[in-house]
């Protein structure tokens, strides 16, 4: 780790430091927690905060951060931390830095089901060229029709579902290969 010793160099007297990485909406965030002899500190993108934790009921944290109190209800599921504040919910994905490269590997050109539902219509065929915004599939869930559209001019490489199929959220439905619009 090239950054080893970073915290102790910046923070004399600190005996331990711990770094946590999260992803939210594709963006990475890094938080360092530092326990100094007298108090607790956190560093978020270079911003330093003093914190104190106040006992709270199960399922919520009460933190005094730079003198201001925050009550933060939370929950965990298999791969996410859910936290709420002021009527806004945040879903943060913990990123294990040792495995970060794998976590970041996406289906670059696959279009996923936005929710569990039933495929009502497959509007394209393999090999077909599609325009940006063109309807590829229609998925119905909770009595609404959601159109899955092409994000850019592409060719349909593979279709992974048939009309009538039940699909899960995140399931790849169609694979596209983008066609550059550099046709002279």
């Amino acid at each position: 780790m090239g950054s080893r010793g970073f915290l102790s160099a910046r923070q004399p007297g600190v005996n331990q430091g711990m770094e946590h990485r999260f992803r939210w909406q594709g963006k990475a965030y890094c938080v360092s927690l530092v326990r100094a002899p007298e108090s607790m500190r956190a560093q978020v993108d270079g911003r330093e905060h003093r914190l104190r934790r106040i006992p709270a009921q199960e399922g919520s944290l009460i933190l005094e951060i730079d003198g201001k109190l925050h009550r933060i209800p939370f929950a965990r599921d298999s791969d996410c931390l859910h936290l709420a504040q002021g009527g806004v919910a945040y879903r943060l994905k913990s990123v294990d830095p040792l495995r970060a490269t794998r976590t970041l590997h996406h289906h670059e050109h696959g279009l996923e089901a936005p929710m569990p539902g039933q495929v009502r219509l497959v509007a394209v065929e393999v090999g077909e060229a599609v325009q940006r915004g063109q309807t590829l599939l229609v998925v119905e869930a909770m009595k609404m029709e959601i159109r899955i559209t092409a994000p850019e001019p592409s060719r349909v490489v593979k279709i992974h579902c048939l009309a009538g199929d039940q699909v899960e959220r995140g399931q790849v439905l169609v694979e596209l290969d983008s066609i550059g619009d550099n046709n002279q």
């Binding site: 956190a42 933190l63 939370f74 943060l92």
Partner: peptide
């Protein structure tokens, strides 16, 4: 997410 949410997440993690 504001800093307090990220700090809370780090504590929980």
């Amino acid at each position: 997410p504001p800093d307090e949410i990220l700090i809370a997440a780090a504590l929980l993690a």
